[in-house]
Amino acid sequence: MNLETIASTQFLAALLAMVAVSGTIFSLVWPMFSRNALKTRMKSVALERDKLRARERARLQASQSDARASLRNQPKAKMKNFVDRLNLKEMLSDESTVERLRMAGFRGSAPLYYFLTARIALPGVIFLFAITYAFLVLPATLPAISKICFCIAIAGLGAFVPNLYLKNKIDKRKLSIQRAWPDALDLMLICVESGMSIEGAFQRVAEEVGIQSIDLAEEMSLTTAELSYLSERRQAYENLSKRTGVDGVKNVMMALIQAERYGTPVGSAIRTMADDTRDQRMLMAEQKAASLPPKLTVPMILFFLPVLFFIIMSPAVMQVMQMNAF
């Protein structure tokens, strides 16, 4: 086959026809031999979802059993005697301290004694470490009174460490509940509109939302129990809003209380609050996106601009150095 034959119009037309026929045959025959990947993927996703659900339910049951155990646990005798002897409950705690411990997920009387003991014992432990460091590591030329004052100041900061830990725990828990609450509210709406009672809806949502937030699932399970044995359902709703500390949960609980008081449909109240909750979450996302440019200003000034100036000025500096060399 010479070059003229390859360059001829007939050869090119035959080549294109062969490619077209081959493509058509391939497109018609290939689906017959290929497996249905969609069914396989959906089956694998369903199996993985069942595994995740079983694992999260097991973890939720374990956390609930730990929570029930913590409700029955009592503080150690020595710690209780220490706190009661020094009268620390009246000096360092009040009703707000108990509420903050509940918001952090610590229930019962034992966490309060642990918290008060930590506020007293931690400064002493820090003072011992600081005095050891000051007299064994720091130079001996420093005055002893300066070292002691330094150790006392460091030990004084230890009294605020339990409060900082508690605040951090509360913030993390509120964030977890706040992120999962719109989805839990949608699930609750589906359950209520399908004919389930509000207790059954809370229990069902607690089982399903555990994959996303263990804290919210635990609180809703406790609310289900309170709805069963408390004389007033309003008290159970108020307890849930106090334990979570999330504004969205408080608004929904107020709506449920008003719906039961005035006889309005619960589904309508939950649907309205679900829309408002999703709007609030979108508004929070927009606020975070709007606050991003100011937050990036300092990193850009410290890290990006010096490198940019170096790249721009390097050729000019190199040319000046070459000119001076000659």
Rank of each mutant, 00 (worst) to 15 (best):
Q178Y: 02
R179C: 12
R179G: 11
R179Q: 15
A180W: 05
A180P: 10
W181K: 01
P182S: 05
A184W: 13
A184C: 11
L185I: 04
D186S: 12
L187S: 07
I190T: 07
I190M: 07
C191D: 10
M196L: 15
M196N: 09
I198M: 11
E199G: 13
G200N: 05
F202I: 05
F202N: 10
Q203A: 13
E207A: 06
E207P: 08
I211C: 13
Q212G: 09
Q212C: 05
Q212D: 15
I214W: 00
L216N: 14
E218A: 03
S221F: 11
S221L: 08
L222F: 14
L222C: 03
L222R: 14
T224R: 05
A225P: 03
A225H: 05
A225C: 04
S228W: 00
Y229K: 04
L230I: 01
E232A: 09
R233Y: 10
Q235K: 15
E238Q: 15
L240D: 02
L240K: 03
S241G: 09
S241C: 13
R243Q: 02
R243E: 01
R243F: 08
G245T: 00
D247N: 07
D247A: 12
G248E: 13
G248D: 14
V249A: 10
V249R: 02
V249D: 12
K250M: 11
V252G: 02
M253Y: 06
M253E: 12
L256S: 11
A259E: 08
E260M: 10
E260H: 02
R261N: 10
Y262P: 07
G263T: 11
P265K: 04
P265D: 14
P265G: 04
G267P: 12
S268Y: 06
S268W: 00
A269C: 00
I270K: 01
R271W: 00
R271G: 03
R271D: 15
R271T: 02
A274H: 09
D276M: 14
D276E: 04
D276R: 15
T277W: 03
T277M: 11
R278P: 03
R278K: 04
D279M: 07
Q280G: 13
R281V: 10
M282I: 09
M282P: 01
A285Y: 00
E286F: 06
E286I: 08
E286P: 06
Q287I: 05
Q287F: 00
K288H: 02
K288G: 04
K288M: 07
A289G: 08
A289C: 07
A289N: 07
A290Y: 04
L292T: 13
P294E: 03
P294L: 05
P294Y: 03
P294M: 13
K295G: 04
T297C: 10
M300E: 05
I301Q: 00
I301E: 04
I301V: 09
F303D: 02
